[in-house]
Nucleic acid binder design. Structure first.
Length: 918
RNA sequence: GGGCUCGUGGCUCAGUCGGUUAGAGCGCCCGCCUGAUAAGCGGGAGGUCGGUGGUUCGAGUCCACCCGAGCCCA
């Protein structure tokens, strides 16, 4: 007869094939149906808060793997904390203002843009941003991320914009906002400021000249500079030398010239110097602070300063510095060495009065005239042409210039701002720890914050200009008035409303008292926007707390959002906005290179969800050490697919074997469990402890490997394999079976929960298939995290099992040998004899002789006394089992056929079938 | 060029205060099973730890330099 029907085989409708790509959207629908975000909050009403404040991605394209990983990590943290009993509001946000969108929109509009007003273009920008917010929102939701998607925060929201202005007002009130000159890219054809992204580099022919600057105190001694922009010489205020490099004084007829030693040869060639002699060598540092006579204006001086940006590639190692016309000159000359910022050029590219006799001359025509003047003065050493890469305007394709213009700044020194911000850093936990040094160095180094941009798509800086005296200023009454307007109608009002509507009665120019005032058109640096979210979001909501528990972004945000938020929060509240800052690395291709369009190695998260499903992507996030850069490829994804299948099949098998198990009535208390089952419970406790600790430390890859190893090594290849005999063969209700089922049920539920923050879809699927749960929620996401329970660890059992498992290693190897010799096929074909020389080992093996059959999955085990002939820990002998194979349980027995009713099965199976064994 | 970070078998990760033949999972190869079956089980082969040079009785683990990669600046 066929005994298969008398066995308790696993039964489940949980499919082996995941089919995530099709199934995940169904769960998304379900979650929408139950309003999972609010359902979760409701289930945790009154519980302590854990707030992770979302850093807003920029709304100008589809999400990429980096943003996907970032949101998944945040989602995991929130889901984990929810299961730990916290109430976890999560408000996703978007950063919406700024150049990339403005640039894209104006490019798409093309010629039309010229006929449109600023506010009309701004409306286009808003539509553009909103379109991508909707796109990204769908993409994030598809990844399984839980959040208040119906009510995200947007930096273009009028209420948000008003808060930005309030934060700004605090800084104005503290007197930390001031106006100063800074060089920016300028196109004098388009008469507009340009951002870095609006610049194209093309080859351009420029003059190449060598000029000697005489020392003030020694007119026969000169420093030789090289430049390709003679027109910037009127704005010269200094000469940069490298402090550590060697310079030489050379004698040329009766004069002494100074150039860098390494560049002497190339200089001499360029200048066609025939006779010269090196007089002495010295380090650049020696000349620090020396004054030179200005090459254009005899009454002005040019100061030597030291800077390590000076390179020995070209020129003379002595760099003409005009802080009004160059970024490096500005930073090193002005910010670090206090040189004046001179920039005598107007919007059209003509010299101003400040340029003396050149006033009115266009800079495009200036080079030959200036070169001629230098020649006349006798300080031009050589002249030539050079073709080099030079910045050009993206719109008109003409060469652009660097030009100093007045900008708004936030002082980082006033009111001990920097000091307070540095103190704030100390109060924060930075994960990983090196993040602290990184941001500290940045805060220590950073110059005053230039917050104004000459753009349209941003929050306007409500500054006024006096038409009479030209003074530009910010008036608190105007600010207050504007904030009121913004709350109602948004910042477009600045562009739409007239001065009369924007300026309250009584506002006058602080310099001359005039009331002829005009609005100015500057917008805030977008880092002010997102950096104000602690105020606009966190401190404005009832369901948040300040500071929040966590900010979690890529490590590029040490310079970006973490920093802008920190400065502004310290200014506004005196405190950092976060308790913990967690950072992750970047996603690289399989070779570790950055993903880029040009390399063609970009993988999109949408590709992954369409090909594998979001859970595979999420499992991958769990598997990697995200604190550093991580690698991604389809090979790597395929590996996760294999791991996923293993996890899924294990879940499926456990579901199948507990289909008739009702925890309330069928559970076997720990004390009554069988030996192996007690051991498994102990292992589970250990796992819970380690995995929980890993989650607490945000070291998810540790949780991943602990869980995966547990599933493969302890469950699939051991516990679930050896308990098949009991589960299938023993009576449905027997202690043997119920004991194992209790364990499997506990293990399954704990495992599913511990995977659930990552395998968010699959965990929900398993949860829905756990039909026998006594108390069930609408989603696994509100279940409580498994608790480590020390009372479920029987130390003696654990110790004995350790010995047995060591013996099992030997048994398995010996079985394999027997198998390769053809003695056995299945391990149940075998009977095993064991010896051990070690008394303690022997004792354990003997006392557990009954259990060994099950543990080794063999038909018979005999433990014999030491026969004195070996010196081994355990010695194993394998032979073919005696007797016949029981047709029901497949174990060999010498007692088959004793019961005439069942001639082909063993006595145990007979007893089971007769209901005599429970 | 500067600040910070990373570099262990094909892939993903472990490697405590420096100490016995560098661990695991996946993949790969060989085999078993057919009552988890587009599953399950067993066995095995693969690294000398990016490179070089130091410190030390002893280094993947400390130091220096170099190479490669990344983030942020310049």
């Amino acid at each position: 007869m066929d005994y298969k029907d008398t066995l308790n085989l696993p039964k489940t409708d949980f499919p082996m094939r995941a089919n995530l790509v099709k199934k995940e959207p169904k769960f998304l629908e379900y979650w929408k149906e139950i309003d999972i975000y609010n359902y979760t909050l409701k289930e945790r009403e009154g519980k302590p808060l854990f707030v992770l404040h979302d850093g807003p991605p920029y709304a100008n394209g589809h999400i990429h793997l980096g943003t996907a990983m970032n949101k998944i990590l945040k989602d995991v943290v929130m889901k984990y904390k929810t299961m730990r009993g916290y109430k976890t509001p999560y408000i996703p946000g978007w950063d919406t203002h700024g150049l990339p969108i403005e640039h894209k929109v104006t490019t798409e509009l093309g010629e039309k843009a010229k006929e449109m007003s600023a506010s009309e273009i701004r409306e286009e920008c808003e539509n553009f941003a909103k379109k991508f917010i909707e796109i990204q929102k769908k993409e994030f939701i598809r990844l399984g991320v839980r959040g208040d998607w119906d009510n995200p925060y947007l930096t273009l929201d009028p209420k948000y914009e008003a808060k930005i202005l309030e934060v700004f007002k605090t800084l104005v009130k503290k007197g930390q906002v001031y106006r100063a000159k800074k060089p920016i890219y300028w196109c004098h054809h388009c008469k507009t400021a340009l951002a870095e992204a609006e610049i194209e580099y093309h080859d351009h022919e420029s003059p190449s000249i060598y000029v000697k600057f005489p020392f003030e105190d020694d007119p026969k001694k000169f420093v030789v500079i090289w430049t390709t922009t003679p027109w910037t010489l009127p704005a010269n205020t200094g000469v940069a030398l490298h402090p550590d490099y060697t310079y030489v004084e050379i004698k040329v007829s009766s004069e002494i010239w100074i150039v860098a030693k390494d560049l002497l040869e190339s200089f001499a060639k360029e200048a066609k110097l025939k006779r010269y002699e090196v007089v002495r060598e010295f380090k650049g540092a020696e000349l620090d602070g020396k004054l030179l006579i200005h090459p254009i204006f005899d009454d002005k001086r040019s100061r030597i300063f030291l800077a390590d940006f000076v390179s020995m590639d070209t020129g003379t190692g002595c760099v003409h510095s005009a802080p009004g016309h160059g970024e490096e000159d500005y930073i090193y000359g002005h910010l670090k060495n206090g040189l004046d910022v001179v920039s005598p050029v107007d919007d059209d590219g003509r010299f101003t009065k400040e340029a003396g006799k050149y006033a009115g001359l266009h800079i495009e025509d200036a080079n030959p005239i200036i070169i001629e003047d230098l020649k006349k003065k006798g300080i031009l050493i050589a002249e030539g042409k050079i073709t080099h890469s030079y910045p050009h305007c993206w719109r008109c394709k003409n060469p652009i210039i660097f030009r100093a213009t007045p900008q708004w700044f936030i002082s980082v020194e006033k009111n001990n701002f920097r000091e307070k911000t540095l103190e704030g850093i100390e109060k924060v936990q930075w994960i990983p720890e090196w993040g602290k040094n990184r941001i500290k160095a940045m805060v220590e180094e950073r110059p005053d914050w230039c917050i104004s941009r000459q753009r349209m798509w941003g929050v306007p800086i409500p500054a006024l200009k006096c038409e009479d005296c030209g003074e530009e200023f910010i008036d608190e009454r105007v600010l207050d008035h504007f904030i009121e307007i913004v709350r109602k109608e948004g910042t477009n009002a600045w562009f739409k409303l007239s001065e009369k509507e924007l300026i309250p009665e009584g506002v006058k120019c602080p310099k001359c008292g005039s009331t002829h005032l005009k609005k100015t058109y500057n917008t805030f640096d977008v880092w002010i926007d997102s950096g104000s979210s602690f105020e606009a979001v966190v401190r404005s909501r009832d369901d948040h707390k300040f500071p929040v528990d966590m900010y979690l972004e890529g490590s590029d945000q040490h310079r970006g959002w973490f920093q802008s938020s920190l400065w502004l929060s310290v200014a506004q509240t005196g405190e950092p906005p976060y308790k913990t800052v967690l950072t992750h690395g970047f996603i690289k291709d399989e070779q570790g290179r950055a993903m880029s369009k040009s390399l063609g190695n970009v993988i999109s998260p949408l590709e992954i969800t369409e090909k594998y499903g979001a859970d595979i992507l999420r499992l991958w996030v769990m598997s990697v050490d995200y604190f550093n850069d991580v690698r991604m490829s389809f090979n790597i994804m395929n590996q996760q697919v294999e791991v996923y299948k293993k996890i899924r099949n294990t879940f499926r098998y456990m579901l199948g074997n507990t289909h008739d198990f009702y925890p309330d009535k069928d559970s076997v208390p720990f004390e009554k469990m069988l030996f192996v089952d007690k051991w498994m419970m102990g292992r589970l406790q250990d796992l819970i402890k380690r995995v929980t600790q890993a989650y607490e430390d945000y070291e998810f890859s540790k949780a991943y490997s602990a869980l995966v190893k547990f599933i493969t090594n302890e469950l699939s290849s051991f516990y679930l394999d050896i308990t098949k005999d009991r589960l299938y063969v023993e009576a449905k209700d027997s202690i043997y079976r119920r004991s194992a089922q209790t364990v499997i049920y506990e293990v399954l539920f704990a495992l599913v929960k511990m995977f659930s923050p990552f395998l968010t879809f699959t965990a929900e699927e398993v949860y829905q298939h756990m039909k026998n749960l006594p108390r069930k929620y609408k989603t696994i996401q509100v279940e409580m995290w498994p608790e480590y329970d020390e009372s479920k660890i029987d130390k003696n059992v654990m110790k004995e099992m350790e010995t047995i498992l060591a013996a099992r290693e030997e048994v398995l190897k010996t079985l394999e040998e027997a198998r390769s010799k053809g003695v056995i096929g299945h391990s149940l074909d075998a009977q095993v004899t064991l010896w051990s020389e070690k008394e303690s080992v022997l004792e354990v093996l003997k006392s557990r002789e009954k259990e060994l059959e099950e543990i080794f999955i063999v038909s018979k085990v005999v433990v014999e006394d030491n026969d004195g002939e070996m010196g081994e820990y355990v010695k194993v002998k394998v032979e073919h089992a005696k007797g016949q194979k029981c047709q029901r349980c497949w174990k060999y027995s010498e007692e088959i056929g004793k019961d005439p009713q069942y001639p082909d099965i063993c006595p145990r199976c007979v007893a089971v079938l007769k209901g005599e064994r429970r």
